[in-house]
Design a protein around this nucleic acid. Sequence first.
DNA 1: ACTCTTCGAATCCTGCAACA
DNA 2: TGTTGCAGGATTCGAAGAGT
Length: 355
Amino acid sequence: MPRLTTLVTELATALGMTGVGSVDVGLARPPSEIVGVSAEQWNALSIARGAGEMQADFETAFVNGRAFLDAADGLRGRGARVIEWKGEHKDPVPAPLPVDLRVDHVYLVSCKYGSKVLGNHSPHALIDGLLEGSLTRQHAAEAGDWFRLVAPEAYADLWAMMREFATVEGLPADPAEMDVAQRKAASKMFPRSELPPPLAAAYTEMSAIVSRHSAARLNDRLGPLKGRQRERFLWRLLRIGTAPYFILGSSGKSAAAHSNRPVRLRIGTPWDVHQVSTFRGLRVVPVEAGQPRLNLVADYTMSDGASRQLALHVEIRWSHGKFGGAPEAKVYLDSPPAHVPGYFPLEPPDGQFAF
DNA sequence: ACTCTTCGAATCCTGCAACA
DNA sequence: TGTTGCAGGATTCGAAGAGT
């Protein structure tokens, strides 16, 4: 069973799309056009609703679904015949369109609540593979820890210092030789804010080197490419693909629901991007932060002649504590979504304002 | 050669705390 | 009060081994 939050946001969105009067009406008798949801899952939803949990999530998602039903760019008020819920899924294809709902077999909808994260990739797949999907897990595994790959000396220094301060016995000289238990123990040795200052300094040092070398490596990889191929890499980061889809969700994830603005976007295809913009280039800049980070700036000339810049960044981080496993590369969109050429705010019905 | 099972790795998602 | 940076947990993948 997926997480309750997922269930609530995705299915309340689906309920809104059907045009039923309210969440409660929909839950009392789940509309037949919504398929792929088990009785058990509807039940879990009803229980959560009855307990008054996640009221704001229910309402925001429901209203988003309704907005999609009414939108000029969406269903234009025509009721959907089939709303397929994809449920728990991970597509076999790398960098797929993140689709949660499919309406009438055609409209693809991604539900994304309170997240600026465009994707989590392995650093190897993103930088060496440019997200082309040609690098398998095995390739990544053979290449080893990304930090060691791009900053071998700083990595070795950090590990040596880790062993010096270690609170667990028998850590090997080579971190790659740790077994699962040791890896877990090592990653737990210094929880948040208990990192000895010399270790923190060594980590900062390594982060800076990783940032620089990762950026250099990405630039090397992108350098020989033609402009169009460079733009394709950017599209993969932005999840712009061959099929248009919609994102329904909210910005921000603060507890105060009123601060969360609904996000309703139509994501176009490369063809759409070229209708409104010309790609001018992509700059990769290493950043010295608490953890390794690359800033990406894309330059465009819009069809009205104005120039526009788009900001993203990539964090490369150990997601499970220091030496606790392979690092991951998280991609964030820093510019407002509506500034992305190819991302279009969902038009409300003529003459009306969006909720 | 094919299917089933297992388990570490990869990825996705959520929480917390410091800061503005 | 809202945002950002960082961290950690949960979930699913998929390669390799076991079984047929």
